[in-house]
Design a protein around this nucleic acid. Structure first.
Lengths: 222, 222
DNA sequence: CAACTTATCAATAGTTCTATTGAATAACAA
DNA sequence: TTGTTATTCAATAGAACTATTGATAAGTTG
């Protein structure tokens, strides 16, 4: 036992996982994939980088075991490999917010002025009472890939046009991709401007989903 | 909203946290610090690298907000910055085991033959019944920095010499630094060879500690 | 103050990582 | 088969990271 070499090999192997999270480009891809599985080309377009480069990064994430890869005809679709992988990404992101001032600053810069929020617990309560409308303001495909039960899909661009669909006397809760997604912020601002009572859900679909399915605190037995 | 530049800055900032986990040397330091706070020199010795190099890596981990730094006379002591940071390291490590065959293989190689284990729930039960002895086989300083309540400290090197301290008719549970620490494996082998009934606790002190203090599933509200 | 211990800084060579380009491959359809 | 689309591969130049060395700084002790 205690062989230095074996120990080094062990840490080297674990570092592969760490390296997966060490490039901003890769993190951007993870952030997109947290919403829904996507093809290389879609991801390349969404993150504004070349297909070849996107493909390489996806390959790296796949090699680290974070993503699955499925061929669909001529396209290749990548998706998160499981809830632990998704959870790890969210934890890393949250930790960076908690510990790095830069992240907080960059987030404020990106998101603009803060709006009123509502937490998971309170929303569940209000849903039970039935006096609230939940609106998913992400693109339709992401809604289709998974959404909060009972929510209706109104992508941000269509919000003003479809305002009549929302009952004028009920509070509206908007949500989108997560804490760093600007859609819900913007939606609440526009709804308020239109005279509605609106709040933004803390977190977004991935956080909600994970909190709903989590058997809390399941650490690998070893 | 939607400024590409601001978005890139955000991911760039988050990637700082990821980069902290991308070097095997740094992971080795984190692994040591998960047991107890330590000075630069101790860490350098324990991980068999130069002081200058160790200092640089510690500086990087500190910059990522994972470690705290305290001057104590002529020494500088580093420690984990909080339970979320510790939890993040353990999650990353666990995910790498779950998803990367290399890690599993390297671990088996390093740890040698598997021994009988006991889980947290069962141990808690047995402790309540009082028919088990828990032995912490880590170095004494690590025991001093924190240990399972009711455990007694017998560092691995002293195990044979102090065998008489352990009641011969009770089952013994040994634990050490974690799933990749060879001490408990070795302790159980030696105890079995001495005719005792012994098992190894799944995980080690950091896992136990975190599971004991966790309010499960606390995601930053945003 | 001088000697000593511990830790950090600064410069650098070697290595690894990233983005880019253009070519190669896979699946499909005409 | 040929053409088309989507993805990956291979080579490469430039950027970032790592370990090493020797010098410097902070704090203690005699």
């Amino acid at each position: 036992m205690g062989s230095r070499q074996a120990k080094h090999a062990l840490f080297e192997a674990i570092a592969m996982m760490g390296k997966a999270f060490s490039s901003p480009r890769r993190l951007e891809l993870l952030d997109l994939l947290a919403q829904a599985p996507r093809s290389v080309e879609e991801l390349a377009r969404a993150s504004e980088q070349s297909t070849a480069n996107t493909s390489q990064h996806l390959r790296a994430l796949h090699a680290a075991g974070l993503l699955t890869r499925t061929r669909e005809g001529t396209r290749v679709v990548y998706a998160f490999a499981g809830e632990d992988a998704l959870g790890l990404w969210l934890s890393l992101r949250d930790a960076s917010v908690a510990h790095l001032g830069e992240v907080e600053r960059a987030a404020r810069e990106y998101l603009g002025e803060e709006v009123e929020t509502i937490g998971r617990a309170e929303l569940l309560e209000r849903l039970r009472e039935g006096d609230v409308v939940v609106v998913d303001v992400r693109p339709e495909e992401e809604f289709a890939a998974g959404h909060i039960e009972g929510a209706r899909s109104i992508p941000l661009e269509e919000l003003e046009r479809r305002l009549a669909e929302l009952p004028p006397d009920q509070e509206i809760v908007a949500y989108c991709r997560g804490p760093f997604c600007a859609y819900a912020h913007e939606a609440v601002r526009r709804l308020s401007a239109a005279g509605r009572i609106a709040r933004r859900l803390q977190g977004g679909w991935p956080e909600w989903h994970l909190a709903s399915t989590a058997d809390p605190q399941r650490r690998e037995e070893r």
